[in-house]
Every structure is written in C-alpha cells, then in structure tokens.
Design a protein around this nucleic acid. Structure first.
Length: 905
RNA sequence: GGACGUUUAGCUCAGUUGGUUAGAGCGUUCGAUUCACAUUCGAAAGGUCGCAGGUUCGAAUCCUGCAACGUCCACCA
C-alpha cells in the first residue's frame, strides 16, 4: 500500500460510520459470535443502565457509554467472553408525563380523559418507540460495542413475566402487601410517589402557635393550620409536668367551626423544648403523625383530598378550598377568635415532586407496599450468610451484600451513604396511578355488595390471571424501579433459568449461569438509591446472590463553570453536535480523562478540541511510522528486533513495556483517567517527541516501530476505538479487526536503558535551553563541548549523531578531548564546556547559575541533615534512603560543577 | 438538624498503605518552521498543596478545630 496517499489530517466523520458498520457486520458485539479465544474465556458482563425512553441521550449518557465501552473492549481484548447487555427503560411516569405534555401542546386539554386508557397508551408507545430508535442510533454513534439484536426493554413480554413472577413471590412471602397508609401524593399527576421521588425544597413558612378554641387548655404550633381539622390527638412528652394532668383525657374542641375530638397522649418522640411542648397529631396527613397514631390507636380523619383541596371533613366553610386558601382562612379565623398566640417565620422544607415540581401532599390511601423490615423465610441460601428457610429482612440482605464486600461500591465513600439510606428506609410504595407501566398482577372478584372492590371484601388472585368470571384487574401500575431493580437477571432469562435444589442452593442455567452476578454496574451516583440499592435488594432476595461485584459510580457532567447543564441556562453540550465536529474518539476521551469516580466533572468544548488534536497526533504518528518504515508484519518485526539495538531502542521498548503493564493494571483497577494519561504521555512525549525524532537520525528503526505501533494501537483501542481501528486497517497491521485482537502482555523488562537515556535527554534539554534563552544559533553549538563523567561521556559519544541532531548542532566536542583553551562548565552529571568567545551572554548565564545554586544549597543542607539523622536512616525504607543519597550526590556534583562554571565565567 | 464531598499553578485536574527537590494538560511569555503533524516543535515563567493546631525522623497525604463552595439525607410540629 502506498502510505504517502494518506491524508495529513484524520477526518473522523468520514470514516466512523464505515468502521462501525464493519464491527457490526463482524458480529463481535454478540458474545456468542466472538472468536474462539473469547468463547473459551471467562465471561465478563455489564448491563447497560437502560436509558429512559423519554427523548434523546445527553452528555451523562455519553459518559456512561464511554466508560462502559472502554471496559467491555478492554476485557474483550483480554480474551474474556464479553457481553454488554443493551436495553431501554420505559420510565413509567417520566414518559407518560412527557407524552401528556406533548398532547397538551397539540391542543388537548386532558389527554388521558379524552383518549381513554387504550388510545392514550398507544400514543405513549408510539413516542417510546421513536425515542428508542433515537437512543439506539446515538449509542451506535458513540461506538458502543453492544449488540442491539439482543435488545431488552423493561416493559417487554419477558420482563413482564419476570415482574409478575417477582410480585407473586414477594406477595407469598408477605413482603408485598396492600395497606391503607399515608403515602406521598402528587396532585398534579394524580399518583403516589416513592420517598425517593420526593424532593425537599427549603422555603419560608409561618409557624403559628394557637389553641383550637378559646377553652382548649393546650396550645400547639403548626405551619399547616389547614390540616388541623384532621387532628385526633395532642401529643406531649410523658414527663412534661405542664400537661401531665391532661394525659389520657379526650377533649372536644371547635376548630374554626368544625367540631373535633382530640385525645391527649404521651409520647417520647415529642420534644418538650420545641414550641409549647405539645404537638397536634394529624394522622392522615403526616407520616410521622401516622406512626404516632398507630402506636396509640388513634382514628384518622382525612381533610385533604386527592385534588389537594379540603374535603367535607374540614367543614362547610372550608370544603373545596385549596390548602393555601384554607390555611390563610384558618389563621385569620383563629386570630379573630383570639386563639392565635404567636406567628413567626421559620424555614421549612416543602415536599415537591421530582417530576413536575408540584407540592406533594401526604394522604392516606390503599396502596401496595414492599415491606423492608418484615422478617421472612428465605427460599434459598443467600449471600453466603443465610440458609434456606432462615428468617431475615430485605434491609438485612441489602446491608450484608455491601458489608461483606460481595458488592463493592466505588468510590468507597459511598458505602456510608448507602448504609445511611438503608437505615432510614421505609416501606416502599410500589403502586402508581398511571397507565404506562407494568400493570399490577392482581385480580379481584367482588365477594360482597361493596361499591368498589377492596382487598377486604374481594377474592384476590396474584400473579396470573385467574379462570372464571367476574375478575377485575387492579388498574394501577408498578413503580418503574420495581422492574429496573430486576434488570441484571430479568435480562438473563430469569425466572426460567433459576431453580433451587434440595440443599437450598440456587441452580442457574443458560445465560444466567454464564453471566450472573455481572461484573460491574457503571452508573451515575445520582441513582444509587433509586436503582443500585434496589437491584441489590431484588437480586439478594430472588437469587441469594449480588447483582454485580463492583458498582462504579461516575460523576455528573457539568458545564465549564460547574453548573448543571440545562435548557434554561442554554449551556447544554450535545454529543450529537460534538461528534461530527470533533470525532467520537475526542468526545469519549474528554469524558474519561481528567475525571475521578464519584466526582462531578466540568466539560468544555475546548477540552474536546484538545483531544481532537490528540487523535490527530496519533494519526500522524502512525502515518509517519507507516510511511518511513518498510512494511513489516508484527511477527517479522518481532524477529528483526532481536539484533542490532541501540540505546534509544532499548529505552523506548523498556518504557513501552512499563506503560503497557501499568495501563493494564490501572484499567483493571478502574483508574481509567490515569491509564489514559500515562498512555498519552508515552505516546506524545516519549514516542513522538523523542523516539520518532531519533528515528530520523538513526536508521533501521523498522523493527522496533513495527513492534510498538500495533501494540500501542491496542492499548489505545478501548479509549479511542475508531481512529485505532482505522489505522489498524489502512496500515494493514493485522489480519482481523483490532477490536478482537489480543491485548499485549509482554513482561516488563527491567532495563538500565531508561536511566542511561536520561543522560542524553538532560544534555539535549540543556543545550536547547541555552539556545532558547540566549538565542544562540544552532551552528554555535559547534563551540560547545561536553564533559561527562566517564559513563556519561561514553553514552554521549556513542550517541553523538542523535545529540547533535536533536540540538541542531553541527558538532559537539567532549571535554576530555579538548585542550585547555576550552573552559569547562557543568550541568547535571555532565559538564558542558563553554567557549567563552562570545557564544554565551556571560552575565545572564552567571545569574542563572547563581540562582540555580541558591536553589540547590538549602536542599543539600536539609538532605544531609536528614541523612545524618539516625532515626531517619533507621526507620525510613532502604529504597528511600538510597534514593536520597543518590540524589544528594547528584546535587553535590551539580553544585560543584555550577561553582566551577561560575568561576570560569 | 445529620452526613458526605471538594479546596494543589491563571484554568481543568493527577498525586492509592506518610518517604527522594509536588506533577500533567490548557492558557501565558519567548523562540522555531520546507523535514509525519501549525490539529506542530522547543524553552521559560508560574504553587507557603484553603486556614490554624497536633502526631511523626519525615505530612499535600494521618488526627483535631475552623472557613468557603457543593451534594445527599431528615417533615422539631
């Protein structure tokens, strides 16, 4: 091939599509179509966190894809049977809300009512399908090496089967139950929400202190006067002498025109120091109060309805008012009646819905819950701690999975956060009053004349649709995270691929046996609770094993000022804009380099541009190697390499093996950024700036370059798959595709060459400095001579051509070969003889020398002191002491040389 | 209210059991250029490692306190 035809600049957009197509056609994204080497290898599996079918992918997704593809490609090249499970998430409420908004924009007033369940769901499905298509093409544009023929969907038939099975299991184990409890209610979307879907926003509120009516003996405080119609108790601390006399009494009161009956109860939870020390208990509209009410068996009066307006229970004056209207009205009525004691402004956390931002009301409703504290009997041995039939709780399972190290969360600082969340976890409300999602697999048949079916007066069938007439299915759907929580095994054929043997061991078959537990779950830290924790819960419960060994949590991608990317700020960087502009490889590098797990990253277009420059650099390095060396196959190169090596050859090979092994270790340890930076330093500094320059002087580098280039491309491939695969192809560097080539793994050879080559680097750098600082023309270097210690002198003499060329000097004379007419000066371990006949600005050089000496003296003094300290030499590791001694010697040498040079000047 | 994270060069960030004179990229300044690459090359300047104590022969690294910024959790009604 004629490499001189290769373009000077790498044009990513011109080649990426074809490369991706070639990958797809080769079929290697499918683990079952990988080469034999991989087929026999150990499985390696990552599930893609399924992107929500709510629109398009953003930078966070791009980062996720970049990291996961890096890992998958790395392990695939390492010979593992790599399986990256692709899929998308129906994202229940998010998607439904999105479609509703679109339909409203198109002119509908209330799409759900106007269309009805079936037609509305058709609209949602249409949208979800479009969104899915966009997501798939975006994943492909990112170079993500997963096989979409194996696509899974959280709402497809297989997943529905798994969900229903899980629901039934948990129901039978008493872990799922229907209950009338206080739940989070989103009045805007008219559905319940889990605790995690509720945000707290600090606002100013008015805390009012009052008595229910004039004759009521106890004053209480509240920020929500409108809920007080629902009070059924006043709670005080049992030891509070002020109220002791009332404890146990039931008092009647007239609160703003409504007759209420409150019992005075004693409860240790009440803080006697706060406010009046008495707490009005509203069981229907506060989870905390509801807990108190359960303890004391108090009745519940619901005064706020699902429309966030007051109910008939609030009395005729208030019924139908919004909560805010009712609050204002109640306060003014209290004021008029002379019951108001105090008003003060306090900060208060308002509960708002994560989606939509509506104020969340707490209401009592009949809903389905997963009970996290309920002891149950395990169906199989679990997590190496429990045997079949042992009692435990879901919380215990979640805790032990991480505590025992079976799942590792990275960075480890998230362990604490995880445990804290578990400790505070309440039962998980899983039923939603939306249409898009897995419909709850429960059927009721009326067994009484009740107007509406409830579990009390109905026959209930769970899991599969029962035979017979009169059955009606629960209209609610499941929280989207219920199905997401099963993702690692619902995608691997569960429940058909799992059974339990007589000893209580889980027997896995098929893909579940092959790939579960998966190796790593890589996702943003923002969904650790929503998803990571629930996956652990589901897997530990249903399989008795963890869903993944490692959980690598990446940070959020922010703009260059550290702000969240958002439409309103107009600071969104869109992968789809950037990929054609800078190339996918550049975008991927910018999302991996300079980042740490768990920490947010700032991203600017500038950074992506820098990595575009680097892809081009790698392109040109390769082009140069291909053009300037004779075509050698990898095998030929290896053979040739055996003989005729120079110092620079030994040096670059030594460096390369070091980098190769270090990069391998770093990737295995998830230190992707560091691995990339190490590779970049080697590629740009060592290889391009030194070795390739030397190769222009010393010929016959074909074998070494022919050895390094293909291996370097391999090391880079997981980071920048496109450009490396392209070079591999146009360079004819190997028979198959780079993506399934073998990861290089030569043992690191400890070599003296690195140290000896430093001698040359130091000298060259020094001479370059003189030229740069003092503007001495290259030709003048003729006048410079070099004295090195014996070894250094020999190194330089042997590599004279290289040194001369790199310094652009015509001639360099070693000092031991010059006469007294030359003066000697010193730099580092070698002496640079300077001809005083005008080549150097003496004053400038003197100042430079003096400054260098000044910097050196304190170091030498302190190091000497340290080394003479017996405690130090006794306690410090030998390696450190030896290193310091060497450095000290070097510094002393240098100082002496500087002194001498100064004297001469 | 509880917890977590961050704070290192003008900017973005490395710095993994405490150990040799704290590193890189970008930016800045100066210089180079027919030679793979101006998407380039060379050189230089630039840091009391947030502040104050402590432990240690030795601290950016460990401990304590403080500050700034950020995040998560929690309905003191």
């Amino acid at each position: 091939m004629d490499y001189s035809e290769l373009p000077k600049a790498y044009d990513a957009s011109a080649v990426e599509k074809d490369i991706f197509k070639a990958w797809e056609e080769a079929g290697y994204f499918d683990p079952d179509k990988l080469p034999e080497r991989n087929q026999n290898g150990e499985p390696y599996c990552i599930v893609l966190p399924p992107p929500n079918r709510t629109g398009t992918l953003h930078m966070g997704h791009a980062k996720m894809l970049a990291v996961e593809d890096l890992l998958i490609r790395f392990y695939r090249m390492q010979g593992r049977k790599a399986y990256w499970i692709p899929g998308t998430d129906h994202a229940a409420i998010s998607t439904q809300v999105k479609v509703e908004q679109i339909l409203i924009k198109q002119g509908m007033k209330d799409p759900r009512r106007e269309l009805g369940r079936e037609k509305f769901l058709e609209e949602v499905k249409k949208f979800a399908q479009q969104s899915r298509d966009t997501i798939v093409s975006q994943c492909k544009a990112m170079g993500a090496s997963m096989d979409w023929n194996r696509e899974k969907y959280t709402l497809d038939e297989d997943r529905n089967k798994a969900v229903n099975h899980m629901f039934k299991m948990m129901y039978e184990d008493g872990l799922i139950e229907r209950g009338f409890r206080v739940v989070n209610w989103d009045p805007q979307f008219k559905t319940t929400l889990s605790d995690d879907e509720v945000l707290h926003k600090e606002t100013q509120a008015e805390l009012v202190t009052f008595k229910y009516d004039k004759d009521f003996p106890i004053a209480i405080s509240t920020t929500r006067a409108e809920t007080k119609f629902g009070d059924t108790a006043v709670a005080v601390h049992p030891d509070d002498v002020r109220y002791k006399q009332y404890i146990g009494q039931t008092l009647a009161a007239n609160y703003c025109g409504k007759q209420i009956s409150v019992k005075v109860i004693a409860d240790k939870e009440v803080d006697p120091e706060f406010g009046t020390g008495a707490l009005g208990v509203t069981p229907a509209h506060s989870m905390i109060d509801s807990d108190i009410a359960n303890r004391h068996e108090l009745p519940m009066v619901q005064v706020i309805g699902q429309d966030a307006r007051m109910t008939v229970e609030a009395g005729p004056d208030f019924e139908g008012l919004t909560t805010l209207e009712a609050r204002a009205k109640a306060i003014s009525m209290l004021e008029e009646a002379g019951c108001l004691i105090k008003k003060e402004a306090v900060p208060q956390n308002l509960m708002i819905a994560e989606r939509g931002g509506a104020t969340v009301e707490q209401l009592p409703m009949r809903q389905w819950f997963v009970r996290v504290n309920k002891p149950f009997k395990l169906r199989q041995n679990s997590l190496g701690k429990w045997k079949q039939g042992d009692e435990t709780t879901l919380k215990e399972l979640m805790r032990h999975a991480v505590e025992s190290g079976q799942t590792r969360i990275l960075p480890e600082s998230f362990h604490k956060i995880y445990f804290h969340w578990i400790d505070n976890l309440r039962d998980w409300c899983i039923s939603r009053q939306i249409w898009f999602g897995h419909q709850i697999p429960v059927w009721y048949r009326r067994s009484s004349q009740a107007a509406r079916p409830t579990s009390e007066d109905c026959e209930v069938s769970v899991g599969v649709e029962p035979e017979g007439d009169g059955w009606e299915r629960d209209p609610d759907t499941l929280d989207t995270w219920f199905s997401s929580g099963m993702w690692t095994f619902s995608t691997l054929g569960w429940p058909d691929t799992a059974s339990v043997d007589e000893q209580g061991n889980l027997i896995k078959t098929g893909e579940l046996a092959m790939y579960h537990p998966t190796n790593v779950l890589e996702t943003g830290y923002d969904i650790i609770f929503f998803w990571v924790a629930r996956m652990i819960l589901m897997s530990a419960y249903a399989l008795g094993e963890v869903p993944f060994h490692d959980s690598y949590l990446h940070g959020l991608v922010r703009d260059d000022q550290g702000r969240k990317m958002s439409k309103s700020l107009d600071n969104i960087l869109d992968p789809l804009d950037l990929i054609p502009k800078y190339g996918t490889d550049a975008v991927r590098l910018s999302l991996v380099m300079g980042t740490s797990p768990g920490l947010d990253q700032k991203l600017s277009e500038e950074k992506i541009k820098d990595f575009r420059n680097f892809t081009n650099k790698l392109w040109n390095i390769s082009r140069f190697v291909l053009q300037s060396t004779s075509q050698t196959t990898v095998e030929e190169a290896d053979r040739q390499r055996a003989g005729g090596k120079t110092l620079s050859d030994d040096w670059i090979l030594s460096r390369f093996y070091h980098v190769q092994n270090k990069v391998t270790a770093l990737i295995k340890d998830y230190q992707l950024s560091q691995a990339g930076e190490l590779l970049r330093d080697f590629t740009w500094s060592d290889l391009a700036d030194w070795y390739l320059e030397i190769s222009k002087i010393e010929k016959n580098k074909d074998a070494v370059l022919g050895h390094i280039l293909p291996r370097l491309l391999k090391l880079w491939h997981p980071f920048m798959p496109f450009v490396t695969e392209y070079i591999w192809k146009v360079g004819g560097l190997g028979s198959g595709q780079l993506m399934v080539s073998e990861w290089p793994s030569e043992e690191s050879q400890a070599s003296e060459a690195e140290k000896r080559f430093e001698t040359i680097k130091t000298l060259v750098t020094d001479l370059r400095r003189l030229r740069s600082e003092q503007g001495i023309e290259p030709v003048k270097f003729v006048e410079f001579a070099v004295v090195a210690d014996h070894a250094g002198s020999q190194i330089i003499e042997k590599n004279m051509e290289v040194v001369k060329s790199l310094c652009r000097a015509e001639k360099i004379i070693l000092a031991d070969k010059i006469d007294d007419g030359w003066a000697a000066a010193v730099s580092g371990s070698m002496t640079i003889g300077l001809n005083l006949a005008g080549a150097v600005d003496v004053e400038a050089e003197k100042m430079k020398l003096q400054k260098e000496m000044e910097d050196l003296i304190p170091y030498i003094e302190s190091t000497e002191k340290k080394l003479s300290n017996s405690e130090f030499t006794a306690k410090a590791p030998e390696k450190v002491v030896k290193g310091m001694q060497d450095k000290l010697e070097e510094a002393k040498h240098k100082l002496a040389a500087l002194e001498q040079r100064l004297k001469i000047l």
